[in-house]
């Protein structure tokens, strides 16, 4: 009797262990398939042309230069604008308001923004910046200050960068707070005991101690936005030509991939694969660097 019971338990155990090995295999196989398909299909289209020529009309030769430029441009703007904001907010959460009710709410809302659908961010910036009744108050101010460079009231690179910024901020807030919390309190106390004002303690001691972690957060944010498509669809739109005008629609890699992949043209498909390979290579490189920099989690 005992023998059958033991046998049954062993059988269950073996089956279950086998299933969880299968589960891990399931995950790894998809990763392999996706990366394999990207390299296989994208590699043939990667050439200097890709970086030097504009997106072509169907049937002609071309590259992705304007899309690459647009992506880099908007990502850089979003990171430059979003990083300090996220850094300060994360600093408030970790240093000043750690246990306050306000910090609790900010943390909660931030974590929701962190996973909120990015397409909704796009709609938000569309409502805020792009869809603007001509002659409205906001637009009047905008035209008064910027003149013809006003970016409100139509699709523009600035709107695209803003929508990416909304995605950058929560990522930076979360990592900054987490990393500052890892800084031992003894460091803060030592600096304060020397008579340093709290702001100096933060800037000269805690930020420095957490620097690697904060940089990790920024890298993760860049990785996150470099593949974002949905928010750019109705903020930056797309542009077939080389454009450096920030108040005008700007092309970006993900949007071009979307447009080209959904088209019926073979040569557009090839370019879409090449763009996909570029983005994935960038994102994976960034996440691996971030992982190397990341300090060990200790809770």
């Amino acid at each position: 009797m005992n023998a059958t019971l033991y046998f049954r338990r062993k059988l269950w155990n073996g089956m279950f262990l086998f299933l969880s090995v299968l589960a891990a295999g399931f995950g790894l196989i998809w990763l392999g398939f996706i990366l394999g398909a990207l390299v296989y299909n994208g590699f043939e289209a990667v050439s200097p042309k890709l970086f030097l020529e504009m997106t072509p009309p169907p049937g002609e030769d071309g590259g992705l230069a304007n899309a690459i430029f647009g992506s880099v441009m908007m990502s850089v703007m979003a990171v430059i604008a979003g990083t300090p904001l996220g850094l300060f907010a994360g600093t408030y959460l970790a240093e000043y308001g750690r246990y306050t009710r306000l910090a609790f709410f900010v943390r909660f809302v931030n974590d929701i923004l962190l996973s909120a659908p990015s397409i909704v961010t796009g709609l938000f910036i569309y409502e805020l910046v792009v869809y603007n009744v001509p002659g409205s108050f906001a637009q009047k101010i905008c035209t008064t200050i910027l003149g013809s460079a006003c970016f409100m009231g139509h699709f523009s690179a600035v709107a695209g960068a803003l929508s990416l910024m909304v995605i950058v901020i929560p990522v930076v807030v979360r990592t900054t707070e987490n990393m500052l919390l890892l800084v031992p309190n003894g460091l803060r106390e030592a600096a304060a005991a020397l008579g340093a004002p709290q702001s100096s303690v933060i800037r000269a001691v805690t930020w420095r101690a957490a620097r690697a972690g904060i940089v990790t957060g920024v890298l993760l944010a860049i990785a996150r936005i470099s593949g974002e498509t949905a928010p750019l669809l109705f903020t930056a739109l797309n542009n077939q030509f080389w454009s450096r005008d920030l108040s005008q629609p700007m092309s970006s890699l993900p949007v071009v991939i979307f447009q080209f992949a959904m088209s019926p043209y073979e040569d557009w498909h090839r370019l879409a694969w090449a763009g996909a390979l570029l983005i994935t290579a960038t994102v994976l490189t960034l996440s691996i660097i971030a992982r190397v920099l990341q300090p060990k989690r200790s809770h």
Binding site: L38, S226, T229, A261, W273, I279, T280, V283
Partner: peptide, 9 residues
């Protein structure tokens, strides 16, 4: 991996 990559794949 960005979601557009999953899409095209």
């Amino acid at each position: 991996i960005p979601s557009i990559i999953y899409g095209i794949w």
